[in-house]
Computed example of a mutant assay.
Amino acid sequence: ADVLRDALSRTTASVVWDPHLRGRPPVPGARLVTPSAQEARVFVRQLDDDEGQSGDGAGLRTAARDARALVRAWQVQAVAVTLGERGALLSHGETPLLVPTPAAASGDPCGAGDRFAATAAGLLADGAFTEAAVQAAVHAATRYVAEGGARAMVTAEDQRTRRPEQPLPDGDTTADALRTAARVRTAGRTVVAAGGCFDLLHAGHVALLQAARRAGDCLIVCVNSDDSVRRRKGDGRPLVPVADRVRVLRALECVDAVAVFDEDTPERLLAELRPHIWAKGGDYARTPLPEQPLVESWGGQVLLLPYLDGRSTTGLARRAASSPVRSGGRR
């Protein structure tokens, strides 16, 4: 152990250290240290600079103070205190960043800390910023718990988490969504799917997707391809190409995977995903949905969710096009 510690202290690679109460402190200069709130409280109490303060190990103020103290005492670049269902609090020694979980997840949390640390380490090794790595790690740990934790059978390929800024090609994105749906179903959890063009993502879209995610244990978004949008909306659409639309959707915390379909309606894709819930905006309440019989054929449920009035891509595009041009040729 001492030989490994000595080697790590001299390496130029990014070191992620998951500390243990019976273990030694992290090597100075470590990129990220990932104690739980309870562990951080114990570590700080062992330091001379605890300042005699006490508090709930799960409280945000306590976690922020503990993280700041540990960054300084351990001489590391950052500490991410994991807070269970509340997410994680990242500190570089100054004002901390709270990274909340994308949704509530009930299940066995055993191993979630390991998933958090491993995900963060992989992304940092790929060149991600610490904040982005912690955000993805919170998402991965939440998904891990929701899918059954250590009891769920997950392949090594399925365990990897990609950075939102590096989206997959359409085919790989869809394949990833299919694997996610199968894995969640196998774990006995609820798969939710929602669909649309999502051209110029706006507050109405986000509210709908957040509500859909809360209806189950994972959310897969089905997106019309560029050709599909063009057939439905006209030659001037989409305003945003599908690769960018996928990239933005995958960056949302409430979205677990994105699949692209080329048809006018998503029945073929839904038949492969077989979601338990197909979520649509409340503006479809009086409109027959061609996919409803298909979803109900495997026992699925079509669910209508509230939609924010006054939000639409068409309206945004019209206002942008009619806005006056300012000096310098900028809008």
Rank of each mutant, 00 (worst) to 15 (best):
R247W: 02
P35A: 01
T12K: 13
R72K: 11
A117H: 06
T12G: 15
A118C: 10
V16H: 03
G282P: 10
V246A: 12
Q75Y: 00
D264P: 02
V191P: 07
S228F: 03
F198W: 10
L8N: 11
G282D: 02
S54F: 07
T155S: 14
D126I: 04
R185F: 03
A125D: 12
P96S: 10
M153H: 12
A177E: 05
R143L: 15
G113D: 03
V71C: 05
A279N: 10
P25D: 14
R319V: 14
S36L: 00
V44Y: 00
P25K: 00
V99P: 01
D262I: 00
V76G: 05
A321W: 02
A64Q: 07
V138T: 09
D172S: 13
T12H: 11
D2Y: 12
V33I: 01
S91M: 06
V44G: 06
W17K: 05
G148K: 05
H139E: 11
V154A: 12
V15F: 00
E131F: 00
R230V: 02
R45V: 00
L8Y: 07
P28G: 03
L269M: 10
M153Q: 13
R68Y: 01
V325F: 10
S323Q: 13
G52W: 07
D262F: 06
T313G: 08
T34V: 03
F198I: 05
A64K: 09
Q38L: 10
T180Y: 06
L303Q: 12
R318N: 13
D264F: 02
A112S: 14
F43E: 06
V260R: 06
P241F: 07
G195K: 03
C197S: 15
W74Q: 01
R41E: 14
S312W: 02
A69R: 14
R65T: 08
D227R: 13
A137C: 05
E263Y: 03
T186G: 09
T186S: 15
R250D: 11
V302C: 11
A141S: 15
A203K: 09
D2F: 11
V325Q: 13
Q46C: 11
G281P: 07
A181G: 04
A73D: 04
D170F: 06
G236S: 11
R31W: 00
V258G: 06
R41W: 09
P164F: 09
A63Y: 01
T142K: 04
A117V: 06
A118E: 11
P293T: 09
G300P: 04
A271Y: 07
P102W: 06
L201P: 01
R179E: 12
G315I: 03
F198R: 07
V246Y: 02
L249E: 07
V71K: 05
E296Y: 04
A182E: 15
D244G: 03
L303A: 13
L4C: 11
R319C: 02
C222T: 14
D199A: 04
E253C: 09
L8P: 02
T34G: 05
